[in-house]
Write a protein that binds this DNA or RNA. Sequence first.
DNA 1: TGCAATTATGAAATAAAATTTCATTTTTCC
DNA 2: GGAAAAATGAAATTTTATTTCATAATTGCA
Lengths: 282, 282
Amino acid sequence: MNILEKITNELDILSKSERKVAEVILASPSTVIHSSIAALAKQANISEPTVNRFCRRLDTKGYPDFKLHLAQSLANGTPYVNRHVDENDTAEEYTSKIFESTMASLELARKSLDPSLINRSVDVLTQANKISFFGLGASAIVAHDAQNKFFRFNVPVVYFDDILMQRMSAINSRQGDVVIVISHTGRTKSLVEVASLAKENDATVIGITTNGTPLAKECSIVLSVEVAEDTDLYMPMSSRIAQLALIDVLATGFTLRRGSKFRDNLKKVKDSLRSSRFERKD
Amino acid sequence: MNILEKITNELDILSKSERKVAEVILASPSTVIHSSIAALAKQANISEPTVNRFCRRLDTKGYPDFKLHLAQSLANGTPYVNRHVDENDTAEEYTSKIFESTMASLELARKSLDPSLINRSVDVLTQANKISFFGLGASAIVAHDAQNKFFRFNVPVVYFDDILMQRMSAINSRQGDVVIVISHTGRTKSLVEVASLAKENDATVIGITTNGTPLAKECSIVLSVEVAEDTDLYMPMSSRIAQLALIDVLATGFTLRRGSKFRDNLKKVKDSLRSSRFERKD
DNA sequence: TGCAATTATGAAATAAAATTTCATTTTTCC
DNA sequence: GGAAAAATGAAATTTTATTTCATAATTGCA
């Protein structure tokens, strides 16, 4: 585990003097890795042995070992960050920035997901009579992709990116049906209405959206996908990728729940594509 | 820079004894960060001052500082790896694995992309009379997403995920048109034919695929997206996400090339959606 | 090739840093 | 309010790293 997080967690277990040490370290960890035990003790206004005891309490062998852990934590800390593309970036620069922002978003999204809700969603999906995916704009492609995955499972699955079709489908839904609505903002009026209609007709509504939005309020289960601020270019970017990864997670959960025989079936679906491909000569 | 790489690079600048030290370190860096200078000297069969000199030659302050750098380098190494989902994984476990595999794939994809080819592709795209995106199966959603992005730029853009429409469109293409074909395997027969038809009709064909495949051979520019081995579940996962990130890169390159006035225009497109949304009350 | 100059190396001395011991102070709990 | 426990730091000790300096190896040049 990251030692900085560990310090934060154990802050209340520490004694008064040890907490002083902790505070100095948390305030400027990168300085500390270049300080001697004496310098740090002075900084925190406590004695050297206290620093040493502090280190041991965090399960390190002593001060030098602690510094090693700290250095590693710093190296690990958010390896990918959301950097904005700049007007004068070269192709190499904006490529790196976009990929790294995407990775940072995935990292954040994973942290914000609640595994127990994923588990419940998988429960619901495996027992569904029919599954519908609805999205508009950038989220439409996520719904499209979800259909692509779930239809392999041999369950009735539809996807619509058309408002009227979504409404009609929602009105026709019934108990045992699962409706998955996808929207990053959670504020698209027509989609909120669709969710509400589906709910009124006793379908289970799962929202892939942000917590606390109007759409979230209409859902039985909210899979909240937090995403770093989108870039300045006025296009949805990372959000849909995080949503797609979530679809992968749900599909995977589904196949795991169904057991190994079911997975043999997936292989057959894949093999059925073979004749449409050029052979690979490895 | 990673200090392990640095050691490797400077191996030939080092003296005989110093090289012994380097070899011991490279052989087992993780052991070294827990060794004292005396232990390492003994291991390498040289004296302690030699170790110290070695450290300084690598621009560190001394042995402890060197160990710090080494620890950080070790911590940086491949933060995300492609771990396979296991039969008995909990929801939390498979969620983490999928997100991490996706991130690992993005990392790999970014490394495999050639910025100069991206630059050329952006050149071609900004000068296109018409842009078409073709994909099938999982790649269809990438084409779909690309259309979603590029239509905002106010250039004629189409996307087809239907073989016949793709063929017809390809046959009707002409000089100045750009056709982007998307396929991870690069072996889908009908798509290779479509690429070939477009090429015969003097369109510029950009392939988002893997180098060396039949599809790649038909393309004027190949944007090769390498991706880690897909998981065992017989579904495309990371490949389409890496492709989407690449679409983001192309779209971004496009807007940067077009200049700032053009970007104001994008804002207008985005703002036009406002009335379809519930207001945010922050 | 021979020899001075340069560079590399390690033994020993020194310096620096970390840890242990132990006495003192502070806190806790009855 | 006071004994027991816990926390703390001064000083001593130990461990670790660095410097100094003498010697050995290598290089460059006549």
